[in-house]
Computed example of a mutant assay.
Amino acid sequence: MNDAQGTAAQPAAAQPAGIVNVANVLTLVRILLVPVFVLCLVNGSTAWRYVSLAAFLGASVTDYLDGQLARKRGLVTDFGKIADPIADKALTGAALITLSALGELSGWVTGLILVREVGITVMRFAVIRRGVIAASKGGKLKTLLQIVAISLYLLPPSAGLPPLAKEIVMGAALVVTLVTGVDYVVRAVRMHQPPPDEALGAPVSDEAVTVRGDEHS
């Protein structure tokens, strides 16, 4: 086999994903749905409450879809790594803040959750050079509980949901949010500590890759 044939037989190197792809579009859709969701929620009528719930759930579904598509189709981009967690926090934060502003959710609950979410997001970027901590089962449970709890609060009074039911779910979401936040801090601190090889002067590999859509910590 000559050199030309040998070169042709080798698989082509994977091309980096462009910034304009379906995963990033879904992330942008989630961001654009945030003000739509808030406007529907503050309208006050029963019909608009259901519209706000639909917008919130639709935005939450895009969070799952963009991550799945990014991983399966190789559409991970620097834009997605940054925009995806920001879109998540914007959606959750907007829901909690608006519910508190309407007097339907205690402000201290919103404050604790937001401090945790923003703090962990900042810490994630701070330790990204060392790598990315994989999403834990607790982190995924936290995300699910937050979505369910917020959805219950978005239901209009006419839905007949007992107030205690949504308070219990929100309480569970708050506890899991705080516990997983502490766990994330502990793991981040351990990751930030120099490994034995580095302490001895050996180079540290910098090959960790952030995968969007699986960062619910």
Rank of each mutant, 00 (worst) to 15 (best):
C40H: 06
T46S: 14
T46C: 10
T46N: 13
A47W: 14
A47T: 15
W48C: 07
W48E: 08
Y50Q: 05
V51F: 04
L53S: 00
A55R: 01
L57M: 09
L57D: 02
L57A: 01
G58M: 05
A59M: 03
A59I: 02
V61Y: 06
Y64E: 11
L65Y: 09
D66R: 02
G67E: 01
L69I: 15
R71L: 03
K72S: 15
K72V: 15
T77G: 13
F79M: 12
F79Y: 12
F79R: 12
I82T: 14
A83N: 06
A90I: 08
G93H: 07
G93R: 06
A94V: 06
A94K: 07
A94R: 06
A95H: 00
I97C: 07
S100A: 14
A101C: 10
L102F: 09
G103W: 12
G103L: 12
E104M: 14
S106Q: 13
S106H: 13
G107N: 10
W108Y: 09
V109W: 10
T110I: 11
T110N: 09
L114A: 08
V115E: 12
V118R: 11
I120Y: 01
T121F: 14
T121I: 13
M123G: 07
F125S: 06
V127S: 05
V127L: 09
I128T: 11
I128R: 08
R129A: 12
R129Y: 11
R130A: 13
V132I: 11
A135F: 05
G138D: 04
G138R: 06
G138V: 04
G139A: 07
G139T: 04
G139K: 01
L141R: 05
L144C: 09
L144Q: 04
L145P: 05
Q146L: 02
I150E: 00
S151K: 05
S151W: 02
Y153E: 03
Y153L: 06
L155R: 08
P156M: 07
P156T: 06
S158L: 13
S158H: 10
G160V: 12
K166Y: 09
K166A: 10
V169H: 08
G171S: 14
A172K: 07
A173K: 00
